[in-house]
Design a protein around this nucleic acid. Structure first.
Lengths: 360, 360
DNA sequence: GCAGATGTTGCATTCGTAGTCAACATTTTG
DNA sequence: CAAAATGTTGACTACGAATGCAACATCTGC
């Protein structure tokens, strides 16, 4: 079936002395035009939406294009149309286990809009805002930017000047130069605390992530204000590193003192599961009878029977969908920059906490 | 001569009168040239490696560029240099939990080479090889392709014709049109079986993934030939769906018969952990005393104390590094297409199997 | 059969940068 | 100081597709 080597018309002999200068392996609209016996403009029109081409001409061109395995160069097209159909996605911090999922879902959603995802990985969050990075991104003429790293004002105003809309992912901008879609960590913590407060909570300890992590900070603040709101006092606040091991270590510290907590609210699941293992296998404590534990994220293993962790599910998929949609709306002009969208996490009640229903 | 956008020359502070003809938001090399009082060629040279520019001229240009927030357009540059500095990465099957990690590490590695990752997500593996997809990818003038989806010959020969090297990721091509880097599932299974055979294995059952999944097939075949090689008979082969739940169901089926296995070799960790939970919490069996269980992948929770799953670690990070390096070598001309690189997985011996050392 | 309306097509130009070549400036050498 | 070698710069064109405009073809109504 692959007979597309030298199709008829013997056109190769028609004074093609240019054979020697064939340094490009790709065929161009001129090649197609010559083979189809039309002008380059016509070829261009065949490959554009809503251009005026007669049926017979279109057929000739399509046949020629197929024979030459031609498709219009997005690069050349971008240059003239000022649209690249590429969306930049900025990520940082290779150690953050949330990024693979975020990247993946953003890729899916961007693909769904007919655009492509161009990935920029910056070593650390702090570097993300640098002027070198924004230059590099804008150099690719991307149509928009979705960033899960914080971007500073200089970065954002460069984008604004270049008329490239920016949507921040789980980061809250301080001005209207960017839109944002975030998980509503505070309302999530409020839901969780409200549920927990259906029974006596005893001493409450908080296990936060790294102090510099914005997301951890939001979760921590959400938890403390929620606790204050229901009039619940709370004990020590410990910072750890978001890992399973860190959770274990912190649990040992927390529970070896003389005033041990009865409830531990953790800033992510990995730490919460570490806490649970430390309780059960090292400290001989029962979860939830001696200690209630909660997490955040709802990673797959939180649902496994051996844990059954009560946690909050960050709606990554919907957040990705929303981020991409917001960007598209701005590109289409039907929406302006500066919009904020907060998506509430869903509470997943499992066996690591007292279930009010079963407690009645 | 067309007059390019005049961003500089007179202080743009209040001179927004030229707003009307300001159709391009980005400044170009002409703008910089005018502001610096040099030619466009000179500006271009300043931004290229190893070009001959005098010190004073370079300074003038750099100052002007900074003032106009200029950086060379990658798009225009790609058009003329025939190099885009973009690597296409093809992924499929959103349900495969391995993809986020692969995508992430590939992104990191590609970034490390000074290139960018352009992501193409195709709905199903079968569509990946379609001619429409390859057209789309080549339209972006990508310098190379890394695909974790199988690509057919038509796809590969299109790439070959366009002189775009292809590296397959965990897929074995049938010809020399593409290179490949794969996890050596067979040798991994061999290592695992050799380790297991240090003691009597009893009845051995195999829990495979979906029948259509190439990776599952390789793991299964690797296990059966390794078992045959050590003279170990093996019992039923069950196909499941790679999930925790599927593992649980399969364990119930396998272990409720009258001839129950003493060793279950699973094609991935999720299923293996499901098997372990079913054994312990539903069937009242001890792991490893009644049943030994092994997995594949070494997902984080395999190492957690409550499981301690013996498994094989797919070296995703090194595979990503290798894939990118192979691509770069082909781009640099120091290597040709058709190369195969097999990276052996690392065996992680934990408590879900009898450890020969502790058994002595 | 003809004027006017509509539909198709080609020419020439444009997008922003790289790179060739020739002109000019500067330094080195005899 | 002249001649040659070297260094620096600018004019111009190529890359590949999109598009305004004009030319041409076809169709409509009378």
């Amino acid at each position: 079936m692959a007979s597309h080597s030298n199709n008829g018309t013997e056109s190769s002999g028609s004074g093609e002395a240019s054979e020697s200068k064939r340094n490009t392996a790709r065929s161009t609209s001129y090649d197609v035009a010559r083979l189809a016996g039309v002008s380059q403009s016509t070829v261009s029109r065949v490959f554009r939406e809503g251009a005026s081409v007669s049926k017979s001409t279109r057929k000739k061109v399509e046949t020629a294009a197929l024979a030459l395995n031609y498709s219009p160069s997005q690069i050349a097209r971008s240059l003239i149309t000022q649209r690249s159909n590429m969306i930049a996605v900025v990520i940082t911090d290779p150690s953050n286990r949330a990024y693979p999922d975020i990247l993946f879902y953003l890729g899916q959603e961007i693909q769904g809009t007919g655009n492509r995802m161009l990935v920029f990985a910056v070593p650390r969050d702090a570097d993300a805002g640098s002027i070198a990075t924004v230059r590099e991104i804008l150099a690719y003429h991307v149509d928009g930017i979705i960033s899960s790293a914080m971007l500073n004002d200089e970065f954002l105003s460069s984008c604004s000047q270049a008329e490239v809309p920016v949507v921040l992912f789980n980061r809250t901008p301080e001005n209207a130069l960017a839109s944002a879609v975030c998980c509503d960590h505070a309302s999530g913590m409020d839901t969780l605390v409200r549920y927990l407060s259906g029974r006596p909570m005893g001493h409450v300890a908080l296990l936060a992530g790294p102090e510099w992590a914005p997301v951890s900070r939001e979760r921590l603040e959400g938890a403390t204000s929620a606790l204050a709101r229901v009039g619940q006092e709370f004990g020590p606040i410990v910072h750890s590193d978001y890992t399973f091991e860190g959770g274990r270590r912190s649990a040992r510290d927390l529970l070896s003192g003389h005033q041990t907590p009865h409830t531990i609210i953790c800033a992510n699941d990995a730490m919460a599961l570490g806490v649970m293992d430390a309780c059960r296998f090292e400290l001989g404590l029962s979860v939830p009878n001696d200690v209630a534990v909660t997490g955040f994220d709802d990673i797959p293993q939180a649902a496994w029977p051996s844990y059954g962790l009560t946690t909050l599910r960050q709606p990554v998929r919907r957040m990705a969908n929303t981020a991409v949609r917001m960007l598209m709306e701005q590109l289409g002009g039907s929406s302006r920059s500066g919009e904020r969208r907060l998506l509430p996490p869903e509470i997943m009640i499992r066996s690591s906490t007292h279930n009010p229903k079963s407690a009645g």
